[in-house]
Amino acid sequence: MSAQNDTPATMRWMIYGANGYTGELIAREAARRELAPVLAGRNRESVEALARELGLEARAFGLEDASALAGQIQGHSLVLNCAGPFSATAAPMIEACLRAGAHYLDITGEIAVFELAQSLNGRAQQAGVVLCPGVGFDVIPTDCVAAALKAALPDATHLALGFDSRSGFSPGTAKTSVEGLAQGGKVRRDGRIIGVPLAYKVRRIDFGDGEKEAMTIPWGDVSTAYHTTGIPNIEVFIPGSPGMIANAKRANHIRPLLGISWVQKLIKARIARTVKGPSEEKRAQMPTFVWGEAVNARGESRTARIRTANGYSLTITGSLAVVEYLMKHQPAGGAYTPARLVGADLVTNLPESGPLQIV
């Protein structure tokens, strides 16, 4: 069934990776809102246990067989993929969604996934399928800031974005970060994504909670902000202590080791055993400060700031806001960023978000 033919009342949708840290949080909130997702994942026992508790349907399947996977998706209007690392799960799930006529959303921050989605824009248009990765904290707030800055300074040539968040990692985010260390830094120069060292650039930034030393990171906006704004030069920053920045610079010397398969497996296995993700109490105590700066060729600049909920809390409400948007609207098929799909005001409409201020 094509996603374009469904109405909100009949829309059948799926959360894949519902048994993971973030997937479960989203599933619980979706159940509370009576959105009735089908819960799915590899681990039958944990998926079915969660589904029984929430009174929802469960499915258990892996992503290895493309034809079988498309069959599992068939009849669903939308899939929200919460199973990271998305370097392993996004490509097969996007392919299955294109074959099955289901919209694809995920909560990645991985540049390669965003670029993959954009490369499939033509197929998505033909299929009438929306491909919109990054509908969580990665990258809703920064994408909306980018869109707002483009509107405020239409001839901007350089864009810097960043956020100050101290929420800790979930297992999936930690595993993705390990992969990112091995790949090094990324920025966009003259419209192209290029590799740079980790902590390639360091500068002092007031994200909204006082000025701090900050370093560049290979965040998803290096891809998405370009597709949202067309600004050809993009960097993304996070604050870091002197020790953290020094460690990032030192990691450049051991990056070849971090890329070895067995080293990755060893580190990820340890993460699976030891990283649990922040508690609800901890999330509630830790808001996030998001910042952006646009500059044009004449040196004119605009600066944007917004305070939002904790990153994981925003991922819950942000992803479901996009799900509910697609339940109520029928956008043309294609590859989107969150701000292009829903609008630059998406972040300000989420719980605990303050106003987006531009000076």
Score class of each variant (00 low, 15 high):
residue 2 S to M: 13
residue 4 Q to M: 11
residue 11 M to P: 11
residue 11 M to H: 01
residue 12 R to A: 06
residue 14 M to W: 10
residue 16 Y to G: 03
residue 26 I to Y: 04
residue 26 I to L: 05
residue 27 A to C: 09
residue 33 R to C: 02
residue 40 A to V: 09
residue 42 R to I: 01
residue 44 R to Y: 04
residue 45 E to P: 03
residue 46 S to H: 12
residue 46 S to E: 14
residue 50 L to S: 13
residue 52 R to G: 07
residue 58 A to M: 03
residue 60 A to I: 03
residue 61 F to T: 04
residue 62 G to V: 01
residue 63 L to T: 00
residue 66 A to M: 06
residue 66 A to H: 09
residue 66 A to T: 12
residue 67 S to A: 15
residue 68 A to Y: 07
residue 73 I to H: 04
residue 74 Q to S: 10
residue 75 G to I: 00
residue 79 V to A: 02
residue 79 V to R: 04
residue 80 L to S: 03
residue 82 C to L: 10
residue 87 S to N: 10
residue 87 S to L: 14
residue 90 A to F: 12
residue 91 A to Q: 07
residue 93 M to E: 05
residue 94 I to T: 09
residue 96 A to I: 01
residue 102 A to P: 00
residue 106 D to M: 04
residue 110 E to G: 14
residue 113 V to M: 11
residue 114 F to N: 07
residue 115 E to K: 06
residue 116 L to Q: 12
residue 116 L to E: 10
residue 118 Q to G: 08
residue 119 S to E: 13
residue 122 G to N: 13
residue 128 G to T: 04
residue 128 G to H: 11
residue 130 V to A: 08
residue 131 L to H: 08
residue 133 P to H: 13
residue 134 G to R: 08
residue 134 G to T: 08
residue 138 D to V: 10
residue 140 I to F: 14
residue 143 D to K: 06
residue 144 C to V: 03
residue 147 A to H: 00
residue 147 A to K: 00
residue 149 L to T: 01
residue 153 L to K: 02
residue 160 A to W: 11
residue 161 L to M: 01
residue 161 L to D: 04
residue 165 S to E: 14
residue 166 R to N: 13
residue 171 P to N: 10
residue 174 A to L: 13
residue 178 V to G: 12
residue 179 E to C: 12
residue 182 A to V: 06
residue 183 Q to K: 15
residue 183 Q to A: 09
residue 194 I to R: 00
residue 195 G to Q: 15
residue 198 L to E: 10
residue 199 A to T: 02
residue 203 R to V: 15
residue 204 R to Q: 11
residue 205 I to G: 10
residue 209 D to M: 15
residue 216 T to C: 03
residue 220 G to N: 03
residue 231 I to E: 04
residue 231 I to K: 00
residue 232 P to K: 01
residue 234 I to G: 06
residue 236 V to S: 04
residue 252 N to L: 00
residue 254 I to N: 00
residue 256 P to H: 10
residue 266 L to F: 10
residue 271 I to H: 14
residue 274 T to C: 10
residue 277 G to F: 13
residue 280 E to A: 12
residue 286 M to P: 12
residue 287 P to R: 03
residue 289 F to V: 02
residue 290 V to D: 02
residue 293 E to V: 13
residue 294 A to E: 11
residue 297 A to C: 08
residue 298 R to W: 15
residue 299 G to S: 05
residue 301 S to M: 07
residue 301 S to Y: 05
residue 302 R to W: 07
residue 303 T to D: 10
residue 305 R to D: 04
residue 306 I to D: 01
residue 311 G to M: 00
residue 314 L to A: 02
residue 315 T to P: 09
residue 316 I to V: 11
residue 325 Y to W: 15
residue 327 M to Q: 11
residue 329 H to I: 05
residue 330 Q to V: 15
residue 330 Q to M: 13
residue 334 G to C: 06
residue 334 G to T: 08
residue 335 A to N: 07
residue 337 T to R: 00
residue 337 T to A: 01
residue 338 P to L: 05
residue 339 A to Y: 06
residue 343 G to Q: 12
residue 343 G to P: 15
residue 343 G to F: 13
residue 345 D to L: 04
residue 345 D to A: 07
residue 346 L to D: 09
residue 347 V to S: 01
residue 350 L to R: 08
residue 351 P to Y: 12
residue 351 P to N: 14
residue 352 E to F: 05
residue 354 G to Y: 11
residue 354 G to E: 14
residue 356 L to W: 03
residue 357 Q to T: 14
residue 358 I to E: 12
residue 359 V to Q: 15
